[in-house]
Simulated scan of single mutants.
Amino acid sequence: MTVAETGPDQRLDLRGTPCPVNFIRCKLTLETMASGEVLSVTLDRGEPEAMVVPGLEQDGHRVEVEDGDDHWVALRVICGGG
């Protein structure tokens, strides 16, 4: 079974959560996860998206944009084990 078939291992809805708190919550959650596990994150567009996505990538995680609208974005973060 692939990761896509099993869905996320954990979820965070961070809409309305300011920077850098949203990034810190993602980072702390990912620290509890094994390499290859998937974290689903929903956050606001704009600064949160612009700060969280590159920050997670710099920490060694793969980030994919899955869904969203003008106000929010859903991310699929594959834990890099970092």
Rank of each mutant, 00 (worst) to 15 (best):
A34F: 07
L56T: 07
L56M: 08
G7V: 05
M1F: 06
V65H: 15
T6N: 01
T6L: 04
P20F: 08
R76C: 12
L43P: 08
N22E: 12
V3R: 03
V52Q: 06
E47A: 05
M51K: 14
V52G: 06
R15Y: 12
T6A: 03
T32M: 14
P8R: 02
E64V: 10
G81N: 01
E37K: 02
V3L: 08
L39M: 05
F23A: 12
D67Q: 14
R62I: 08
T32C: 09
T29C: 13
P8Q: 01
L56P: 09
H71D: 15
G60D: 07
H71W: 09
G46W: 01
H61L: 05
R25F: 03
H61M: 04
C26S: 04
M1S: 13
M33L: 15
S35A: 15
V52D: 04
P18S: 06
L39A: 04
G60Y: 03
V53P: 13
Q58S: 15
D70M: 03
G68C: 03
E49C: 05
D69Y: 10
D44G: 12
T42L: 12
I78R: 04
V73R: 15
V77W: 04
P8D: 02
L43S: 05
P54W: 10
E47M: 02
W72N: 09
K27D: 14
V41M: 02
G55E: 12
L14D: 10
D44L: 12
I78P: 00
D67P: 06
C79P: 00
T29F: 06
P48N: 10
S35H: 06
M1T: 12
C19P: 12
G16E: 03
V77Y: 07
S35M: 11
S40R: 10
G81M: 02
D44Y: 11
A74S: 13
L56C: 08
P54V: 11
E49F: 11
A34M: 11
A4N: 10
V73Q: 14
R15C: 14
D9F: 00
D9K: 05
H61V: 05
M51E: 14
T6R: 07
M51I: 14
G81W: 05
P18R: 02
T2Q: 08
V3Y: 01
G55P: 09
P48E: 13
